[in-house]
């Protein structure tokens, strides 16, 4: 029995990106063990691990944006993403973590791939306020100053909406859309690789 209708037709760019990367997103959440954020056993150590994976992933992807700063979309959103990265790093330092990142090869091959990666990074912060609300009582105890990344600031929601609006104004042909999807998939893969490395070997950060 197939009861599926109307999805997949007349989708805008942001919706096509979402559909095309749904499985990648799911795998990131599994490999980052994101569900543990909601478990009773979530503790300071797990929180620090979670932030470390986020930070390493952000840093790796942001390093890839440098050659594409002449693209107005990338230039516009990189500054906000740098602030997010700094917030995660600030929280890690506050927890006493020492960070060192493994140098990685460039993975994004053109500005459309980079825009796909921006989509992933901006989207990754969409649940921040909600998760921040859920975690607020516990993480406040673990920090000496107020947590910066998981704060209850809802501006990221508007930022993501603005980004999607700009995305949907782009007139993309099929190969261009494929490039953007490829960039998003590469960005998701960074999160997966960093998480796997972290849990298996802890090469990316010392705690």
């Amino acid at each position: 029995m197939i009861i599926k209708k109307n999805l997949g037709e007349d989708l805008n760019v942001a919706e096509q990106l979402k559909l095309a990367t749904k499985e990648d997103h799911k795998m990131v959440e599994i490999e980052m063990r994101s569900a543990e954020l909601f478990s009773r056993t979530f503790d300071r150590h797990r929180y620090q691990q979670h932030l470390a994976i986020l930070w390493n992933s952000y840093r790796s992807i942001l390093d890839n944006f440098e050659p594409y700063q002449c693209n107005p979309i990338i230039e516009k959103y990189t500054s906000q993403l740098n602030l997010d990265e700094a917030a995660i790093l600030g929280d890690l330092k506050d927890l006493g973590a020492k960070n060192h990142i493994t140098k990685r090869q460039p993975i994004l091959m053109n500005s459309l791939e980079a825009i796909g990666a921006v989509y992933v990074l901006l989207g990754s912060s969409m649940g921040r306020s909600m998760i921040g609300k859920k975690l607020s009582s516990s993480i406040a105890d673990w920090h000496s100053s107020p947590p910066k990344y998981y704060s209850q600031n809802e501006s990221e929601i508007q930022l993501f909406q603005d980004f999607k609006t700009e995305l949907n104004k782009l007139k993309l042909n099929h190969p261009q859309l494929e490039d953007m999807i490829a960039g998003a998939k590469k960005a998701f893969q960074v999160f997966r690789t960093v998480a796997r490395n972290h849990y298996e070997t802890k090469q990316t950060i010392s705690e």
Binding site: M1, I2, I3, K4, K5, N6, L7, E15, K18, L19, K22, E23, K26
Partner: peptide
Amino acid sequence: NLADPEIDGFGVLDYIKENNVPAITAAVTA
């Protein structure tokens, strides 16, 4: 947008309508 390739949220809604389920229905979507 459910992951199952054979059914999406509209399919679930159709079942609700066809069976006259009196519940309030809401789409929650990206």
